[in-house]
């Protein structure tokens, strides 16, 4: 549910909104526990958990040893046996260390045991490039996990959604993977007070337009909105869709938009090949919206290389506002 009229809101950052959601959950539901490396006294690698250990104690905000596989195993086991753990990874790149627990256990146990047990675990992954943290701390691996049935994978892009989707994830009986772009942690926005939830399976149109559909995910939503604002000065109205959920993908919102605009641009930070953009492009090409396409579909994604340490190269490795602007303009004006 979005902030409805009459609901009191407060300005907070994306990180504060996540902390607010965790604070509400810890207060309301004694089954909720936070787990992760340095999330206690240190407050988390990106200071997201902050002072929660002081408010809820070390039994509810648990520092785990430096073993992602161990932490994930404990979180999955705790979820199977009645708790509602939120496991924070320091960097989403370290999901690779915990793949066995995420892919083979969390995603599969409900199926393997005929529905007798579910795994209501929530995992939070600080993701993406732009912080100068180089190849092993800057990846965007959401499509990896999005490929696994049994998981839900979301990428909130605003403080309001970050809070609402985390609370929705805790309500969900199955494992939910939340990818939080590190550069968004300081983004400020109005956030409704108290408990509310945001659907985990709905994309949202952030800006309406009729010239071209831009489906963006994660931080690319903000870059796409910036580009759309510049395009509007030339009289080109781009429609910007915030994908929000990688699994499941909200087909209808995207198809509806493509039927209107006839042009599709997919923008995502993860490596372009075999990524979210390929999935969305194929989905549109396979649907009745195909007959509405008036130009080839265009994908903008990350370069086919590890994220470089050099700041200029790091920028060059992922789509920037100028790239989106050029691609969207070429599409909208019939030059693609």
């Amino acid at each position: 549910m979005n902030a409805a009229a009459g609901v009191r809101t407060r300005e907070m950052s994306y990180a504060e909104a996540i902390r607010d959601a965790m604070d509400i959950a810890l207060t309301e539901d004694e089954r909720v526990v936070l787990m992760g490396e340095d999330i206690g006294v240190y407050g988390g690698a990106f200071q997201v958990t902050g002072d929660l250990v002081e408010r809820h104690g070390p039994d509810r905000v648990i520092d785990t040893p430096i073993s992602e596989l161990g932490g994930a195993g404990v979180a999955v086991g705790a979820a199977m046996t009645g708790l509602r753990p939120i496991l924070e990874f320091q960097f989403s790149d370290f999901a690779t260390l915990a793949m066995e627990q995420i892919v083979n256990q969390a995603a599969k146990v409900r199926y393997m045991l005929g529905g007798a047990v579910s795994v209501p675990v929530v995992m939070r992954f600080p993701a993406g490039s732009g912080t100068g943290a180089a190849a092993q701390h800057s990846q965007s691996l959401e499509a990896w996990l999005g490929h696994v049935p049994g998981l839900k994978v979301v990428q909130p892009t605003t403080p309001e959604d970050a809070k609402g989707m985390l609370l929705a994830a805790l309500d969900d009986p199955d494992p939910v993977m939340i990818f939080e772009h590190k550069l968004l942690y300081k983004l400020k926005g109005q956030v409704p007070e108290g408990r509310y939830t945001t659907p985990l399976d709905k994309a949202v149109v952030r800006r309406a337009g009729d010239a071209v559909t831009v489906v963006a995910s994660g931080i690319m939503v903000h870059k796409a909105l910036e580009a759309a604002g510049q395009l509007a000065e030339d009289g080109i109205e781009a429609e910007v869709i915030d994908l929000r959920s990688v699994r499941p993908i909200d087909r209808e919102t995207i198809l509806e938009s493509v039927r209107k605009t006839g042009r599709l641009l997919c923008v995502y930070e993860a490596v372009k090949t075999l990524g979210i953009g390929a999935e969305i492009s194929a989905m549109v090409a396979e649907s009745d919206a195909f007959d509405f396409l008036d130009a080839p579909i265009v994908r903008l994604g990350g370069a086919e290389c590890p994220i470089p340490y050099n700041p200029d190269l790091e920028k060059a490795a992922v789509p920037q506002i100028a790239d989106i602007l050029d691609a969207a303009r070429a599409l909208a004006t019939g030059r693609r």
Binding site: G262, F290, L293, D294
Partner: peptide, 24 residues
């Protein structure tokens, strides 16, 4: 021709070969 152009031509009963294309 784009899929949209093909559909519109089909609906209007026009032959694509009679329509000049201005795209790339």
């Amino acid at each position: 021709a784009t899929p949209l152009a093909r559909r519109l031509a089909r609906e209007a009963d026009l032959r694509l070969s009679d329509i000049p294309g201005t795209g790339p």
